[in-house]
Design a binder for these strands. Structure first.
Length: 801
RNA sequence: GGGCGAGUAGCUCAGUUGGUUAGAGCGCCUGCCUUACACGCAGGAUGUCGGGGGUUCGAGUCCCUCCUCGCUCACCA
């Protein structure tokens, strides 16, 4: 790449498609996105490190506007810091996305008339591996199309051998510390995915259902108790009815027994202080320990049996401890069908008292939307309270800031009430749990390495069938991608902790909070100091864009139509702090007009400048003494200083000065739309509309004043391009490399050029404002009198006596 | 049900510690193909700043209340 200005004039129209791909290839060939650990101050180098780890898209993902927004934001920050002289590293990668990917492949083989069980585990995993290998690179290739300046040599994948090693290390360490345990309890069960889910994976949604009032007769025939339930089919698994010990309606019945209708089982009436609210329903609660988390607690307290009456598939079945509670005619019925039939049966028995409409929150599987069933089962859990403490403290102490600030309260609230994390999934796609069981001596081995024989008795060891929650690998991402658990890793030393984490609020708990906990648990340090939660891309009706709803915009379509820079500029300029971005999928022309117009404007300023400033090298501004400058020169240089100030204020500071965010710092920075607007205002409203117009006659003349104008013009445009490089990297590079500015040691690429710095040496210029005001007044008069711009004023104006 | 946030021009949003005629982009209206740009230039219109009450010399900006949306958490069967 030559530094010499191109000799061919710029084409009248900027053509993004023919330039972007070539430029990106040049950048990659020159290695300008590759980070050097040796340059990081932490490794004895001279630069601050600035690191962002990309939220890894699902390995099967196809680029959508959400990715477009998320990655453009990260790229703007990385490009900004790179120009500021930091050793900038942006780590890309993909997530194997356990349950999501498994669902996709299961759908594929279902279309072939098969289930994963028909195929067998090994074949299914092989098939899935093949599938992700095929699609795996797509999303990353697409990220290149939007200009992402990632260090592709460090591309990571959560299911790679390296990261799998990290996952095992994390599991074993936590187990050694007593923070991982096997628990027998009620968990959320998805009967379609056939796996347990964590609390976060079972999403609440309000639904209008019914509250069924059912009468349970006393065994001695002296009356009955009416209970209320939203899930009547679960009554077959009832083991008791609980009342409040002080409830006068039921006090005298405590200790007596009821006969459970349909199941015909005798169950006790018990007193429970915590589990019963006498004011709700009838004040009497049926206890179903195997199918309700709350009832499980009560069942445990009172040492009650826990019969299971639902199969993994969600059909009625006499499971563990159920005896013959489920009558033959209901066996095999789907739970919702069973609900209807149980209600009918109760009606026939005269046990159904009434049905009230009732709205309540029902949990759904976050991947397939199936109603989740609470179900008793054995799972692996992580004890979260001890891990949450430092994560809470870090935000309270301002070592980590979360923007917009209101999310801090959400984060703190969640961590304060955190519950243990169910990490085992009954899936096949993922990291298999590193636990082996010995059938001979019942010894349980938790191991970093695969084992074949029981270390205790030498018998055959059998690995746990389950895999880990996909988020169990994600929460290690900021350090597993840098080489952990190898603590001698060069990258880990140079680049951990990272700086900003940029993502959407949806995964604050799934991912962000857990990464903070993971950072402290395994690295004794927060993984980043800033969490930037940006908005969601929505359509004009404020509906989140999604492929299934058909209201999405394909970023690649936009790139083909208007270019990458237009896409990037539009989303960044429209991105208020924490605000959603609204785009119209039915009118791309209109939606991306801000970006397209701006890119065109830049191009035309460049055309004018190159045609009028000429190709001979211009003097650097430092070679021009202040007395040679005109008012307009000093004015535009003032404007530039102001623009740089505004951009800096909107973007920074990049990191807390002393490791802790001060009150002022906390509220500063990451105002990407403000930064973009400040740069736009300078280059368009100040430079193009006023200064450039004012230089036209000077440029047409000859002599010293012409050189001054050429120099100031080139200087200002050069600075403007550098200010804008993070947002619109392609067009700024195209133009910048053609600028006839003499700069020593000038880098071939604007992405590596220094970030502009203000220069106060020219003094403050205020008189030019008078000129502008005068011109404005004249323009207003001309408009008022409808004088066309080209028409000269012949008649003298009579202002009256 | 708990917590949080928002309601400012037709649309999306800025409005810093309360202080002169409330701003930007897009849209709209008028006039211009002025030799960089009509994806442009110049000019212009539009807001009882959600309703009501209060504090103050003065409030979009502080307090109370109500209404409407949104987010988030939640074992009331």
């Amino acid at each position: 790449m030559s530094n010499a200005p191109a000799t061919t004039p710029l084409s009248p129209q900027y053509d993004p498609t023919s330039t972007e791909a070539n430029l990106y290839r040049e950048w990659l060939d020159a290695g300008i996105f590759t980070a050097d650990p040796g340059s990081s101050r932490r490794s004895g180098g001279k630069r601050e490190s600035f690191v962002i780890v990309m939220p890894p898209p699902n390995v099967t993902a196809v680029l959508h506007m959400g990715h477009g927004l998320n990655n453009t934001v990260q790229d703007v920050l990385i490009r900004w810091r790179r120009m500021c002289g930091d050793e900038a590293l942006w780590v890309p990668g993909t997530d194997h996305a356990g349950i999501a990917t498994q669902n996709v492949v299961e759908k594929q083989i279902a279309a072939e008339g098969q289930t994963r069980f028909d195929m067998g585990r090994e074949a299914f995993v092989a098939r899935t591996t093949e599938f992700v290998t095929e699609t795996g690179g797509t999303i990353l290739e697409q990220l290149k199309a939007i200009g992402s300046s990632c260090d592709w040599s460090r591309t990571a994948y959560t299911l790679s051998p390296e990261l799998s090693k990290a996952v095992r290390e994390a599991f074993v360490q936590l187990h050694e510390r007593g923070l991982i345990y096997r628990g027998h309890r009620v968990i959320h069960w998805c009967s379609r995915c056939l796996t347990s889910l964590s609390d976060e994976e079972a999403e609440h949604s309000e639904e209008t259902g019914a509250l069924y009032h059912v009468s349970y007769p006393l065994t001695n025939g002296s009356g009955s108790i009416t209970i209320a339930t939203t899930r009547p089919e679960t009554m077959l698994a009832d083991v008791a009815v609980a009342v409040h010990p002080d409830d006068d309606r039921y006090k005298h019945l405590i200790g007596k027994t009821l006969t459970l209708p349909i199941a015909n089982v005798e169950i006790p009436i018990i007193a429970d202080l915590e589990g019963v609210d006498p004011a709700f329903g009838t004040g009497a609660v049926k206890i179903t320990p195997a199918h309700d988390a709350n009832d499980f607690e009560m069942g445990t307290r009172h040492k009650l049996p826990m019969p299971v009456i639902l199969s993994p598939e969600g059909t009625m079945a006499n499971g563990v401890d159920a005896g013959s509670r489920v009558p033959a005619e209901l066996l095999g019925a789907d739970r919702f069908e069973a609900r209807e039939r149980v209600v009918q049966m109760l009606k026939h028995l005269g046990a159904l008292v009434k049905i009230d409409p009732h709205t309540h929150a029902v949990r759904h599987c976050y991947r397939c939307d199936t109603v989740v069933e609470p179900r008793l089962s054995d799972q692996w859990f992580v004890k979260m309270k001890p891990l949450a403490e430092p994560a809470l403290q870090a935000v309270r102490d301002r070592k980590i800031r979360i923007l917009p600030e209101r999310w801090e309260a959400v984060y703190i609230n969640w961590l304060e009430g955190i519950r243990d994390w169910n990490i085992s999934r009954q899936l096949w796609w993922g990291h298999r749990i590193p636990v082996w069981y010995c059938d001979a001596c019942a010894h349980v081995t938790v191991s970093r390495d695969d084992i074949v024989n029981c270390p205790k008795c030498g018998g055959q060891a059998r690995q746990d069938e389950d895999v880990l929650d996909t988020w169990f690998s994600s929460w290690l991402w900021p350090f597993s991608t840098l080489g952990w658990p190898d603590k001698g890793s060069v990258d880990l030393k140079a680049f951990y902790p990272t700086d900003d984490l940029v993502t959407a609020p949806e995964i604050l708990f799934f991912w962000v909070a857990r990464m903070v906990m993971g950072g402290f648990a395994f690295m004794d340090e927060a993984p980043f100091h800033t969490v930037y939660l940006h908005g969601t891309v929505r359509d004009m009706k404020h509906v989140k864009m999604s492929k299934s709803l058909g209201n999405g915009i394909d970023p690649l379509d936009v790139i083909n139509l208007f270019g990458t820079d237009a896409l990037r500029y539009t989303v960044i300029a429209g991105l208020g702090m924490g605000a959603d971005v609204m785009l119209d999928p039915t009118d791309l022309e209109k939606s991306f007009a801000p970006g397209r117009n701006f890119v065109t404007k830049l191009w035309n300023i460049g055309r004018f400048l190159l045609a009028n400033v000429g190709e001979e090298t211009v003097q650097p501004l430092s070679a021009i003494s202040v007395d040679r400058l005109r008012r307009s020169d000093r004015w535009i240089l003032n404007c530039l200083n102001e623009a740089i100030r505004e951009c800096d204020a909107a973007l920074g500071p990049a990191r807390p000065r002393d490791g802790v965010w001060t009150e002022t710092e906390l509220k500063s920075g990451l105002r990407l739309s403000e930064y973009t607007e400040a740069a736009r205002r300078f280059v368009w409203n100040d430079l193009a509309d006023w200064y450039l117009e004012s230089t036209k006659s000077r440029l047409a003349s000859t002599g010293d004043d012409r050189d001054v104008a050429r120099s100031v013009l080139a200087h200002c445009f050069d600075a403007a391009l550098r200010l804008l490089q993070p947002v619109v990297p392609f067009i700024t590079d195209s133009l910048w490399r053609r600028l006839p500015v003499a700069i020593e040691n000038r880098d071939a690429f604007i992405a590596r050029a220094p970030w502009p710095v203000g220069n106060e040496a020219f003094g403050v210029e205020q008189e030019f404002e008078l000129v502008r005001e005068t011109i404005n007044a004249v323009r207003q008069l001309r408009a008022d009198y409808s004088l066309p711009p080209g028409e000269r004023i012949r008649a003298h104006l009579d202002f009256g006596a």
